[in-house]
């Protein structure tokens, strides 16, 4: 877990690591990764990953519109909005 990796995953996570905490966090991450590395000693060839404890299949919905118009409520809880849109600083494409 080098500095560059920490920079990359911080960017992917949109998190900034304070300079004074950087060493500690890098250290922690490295220790955690070392700790979970013990999994690599286990032979898991031919073992299907278990991504959900329910080994079942999903129920699905019928194609029906059930939603109400929540425009006002939803724009109200947004940190920044006008009467029609959620607003963010101008994105330059």
């Amino acid at each position: 877990m080098d500095k560059k990796t920490v920079t990359t995953i911080s960017y992917l996570s949109r998190l900034k690591i304070d300079e004074e905490k950087e060493e500690k966090i890098t250290n922690d991450l490295e220790n955690i990764i070392k700790f979970v590395d013990q999994l690599n000693d286990i032979d898991t060839s031919d073992i299907e990953p278990l991504t959900n404890p329910l080994e079942k299949t999903a129920k699905t919905r019928d194609d029906i519109v059930t939603a109400d118009n929540l425009k006002k409520e939803l724009l109200e809880i947004a940190p920044s909005s006008n009467e029609d849109y959620f607003l963010v600083p101008r994105v330059v494409e």
């Binding site: 995953i9 911080s10 996570s13 966090i25 991450l29 955690i32 990764i33």
Partner: peptide
């Protein structure tokens, strides 16, 4: 900090 730590670990193991 703890939440950040876990998000970072998560991003790492999925990358």
């Amino acid at each position: 900090d703890e939440v950040k730590r876990r998000i970072l670990i998560g991003s790492y193991v999925l990358s």
